[in-house]
Structure formats: structure tokens, C-alpha cells
Simulated assay, not measured.
Amino acid sequence: MILTSILSFFGCKKQPEKSNEEIEMDKHFEEWNNRKIYKVLTSEILESISDDNLEQTIFDNIYEIIGDDYRNELADIQKLSKGQQAFWSTWVLEGEVNNGGFNQFYFNPSGQYSDMAEFGFKTIGAEKHADLTTNANKIYAENKERLAEFDDGTMESFSESYKDNPLNKLDTEFYELGDLESISELRIKYIREHISEFTTE
């Protein structure tokens, strides 16, 4: 009895079993964390990778190429192939908008890819997303000076920037477009049909 109390006190008490959902999440996290990252991509490697893993493989490879030089990131991306630029810019825009809307996309350094993403969506055949991004770029340009007033590095100002922001109405349109054209499927299709634009031999 005393021993049990001591073990419990020092954290040796038996931990509750994880649910199947938690076990599955741990498994996915471990697989992602231990994924193979290619510094060089050949056509043979790309053809051997499943569609489920293709986009992450391309992203990792581009990141290996450009590294952590954030100040020159845009210039480095502009040196890549048309396909790589389309992939990177649309991936970045999609992630930012899904996380915090178009306002977050432009508020963060990701906004530097606004024009490239517009062209990138056209490149992969996501015409509806291209049109929406064109509209978003236009609205942002018209409101850039006003929105810049909130860019003081604080979360409070960032939150305030959403109030009466004309970009907000585009977020719902973006989310609904996913039912009409899948960016992921179009990116994968483009990669498969333009393998040479993604090889880094």
C-alpha cells in the first residue's frame, strides 16, 4: 500500500490507455516526422511516389533548394521552373487562406506570392481560383494603405484588421470553390503531366 502510494506520487501510476483515434494520430505524426525528404528528385523517383505523398515530396524538395533564407525567398523561388513556382505559390496561398483568410495571406510575408499564385492557378488549370485571386489582388491593392496601418507587429492590430475588411467576403468563396475544383488534384495532375518541371537532377 505504501509502495503504491510512493509510485503514484512520483508519476509511476499507470497511464490511461490511448483511444484508437489518438493512436492513429500518433501513427500519422510519426510517419510524417520520419518521411523521406529528397534533396534531388529524378523522374523515376517522382513516378514511384503515390499521389497521397506527391505534394509533400515536392514541397520538401523545394524547401531543400531555397533553405531558410527568408529575405531572398521570393527571388529564389523565381529562379525555379514554372511548375515549381505554380506549386509553391498556390500551396502557400491555400494554406494561409484556409488558416486565416485572404487577410492573413496578405498580412504575412506570404503576400509576396500574390501575383505568382494568380498565374500559378492558371498554370495548373484552377481557373476559378485564379479568377478569385485576381479579384483578391485587386481588392487588396485598393485597400493596401488602410490595412498597412494595422501592421505594427501586434496580435491586437492583426485582429483589428479583420473588421470591415472587404477581403473577408472572398474567404467563403474560396472555401466553397473546393467543391468545384480541387487545387490538390489539379496540382498533382499538373506534376504528373509535367514531370520534367519538378526534377532537380
Rank of each mutant, 00 (worst) to 15 (best):
K138S: 12
N168D: 05
A126K: 07
K128L: 12
G125H: 03
A141V: 00
K144C: 06
F158P: 07
N165V: 01
E156A: 10
Y140V: 01
S161R: 06
E145M: 07
S161T: 06
F150S: 04
A141G: 04
A148W: 05
F158N: 06
E149N: 02
G125N: 11
I139E: 01
A136Q: 03
S161I: 05
L170A: 03
E156H: 10
S157Q: 11
E156L: 09
D131H: 15
K128Y: 03
A141Q: 11
E149G: 00
A130Q: 11
A126F: 02
E142V: 00
S159H: 11
S159Y: 14
A130F: 04
L132N: 05
K169Y: 13
E149V: 00
K163F: 13
K163P: 05
K144R: 13
D152P: 02
K144G: 00
R146I: 02
N165P: 08
K138L: 06
G125E: 11
N135L: 14
E160N: 15
Y162E: 04
E142D: 08
L170N: 03
L167D: 06
A130D: 03
D151I: 12
A141W: 08
L170Y: 06
I139Y: 08
K163C: 04
P166C: 05
T123G: 00
F150C: 07
A126H: 09
A126N: 12
F158Y: 15
I139K: 03
T123P: 07
E149A: 01
M155H: 13
N137R: 09
N135R: 15
A136D: 08
T154H: 10
N135I: 10
H129L: 08
F150A: 06
L170D: 04
S159K: 12
T154W: 13
E127V: 10
F150D: 04
N168C: 07
D131N: 15
F158I: 05
E149L: 00
E142P: 00
G153D: 11
E145L: 07
N168I: 02
S161K: 06
I124H: 10
F150M: 07
N143K: 06
N165K: 01
E145H: 07
T133F: 11
S161A: 09
E160L: 14
S159C: 11
D151N: 13
A141K: 13
H129G: 00
P166Q: 01
D164M: 09
L147F: 15
G153Q: 14
T123E: 14
N165Q: 04
A126Q: 03
K144Q: 12
D131C: 08
N165C: 08
H129I: 00
A130V: 01
I139W: 05
A126G: 10
K144S: 11
K163W: 06
K144Y: 12
N137Q: 12
R146T: 03
E156W: 09
I139D: 01
E127K: 15
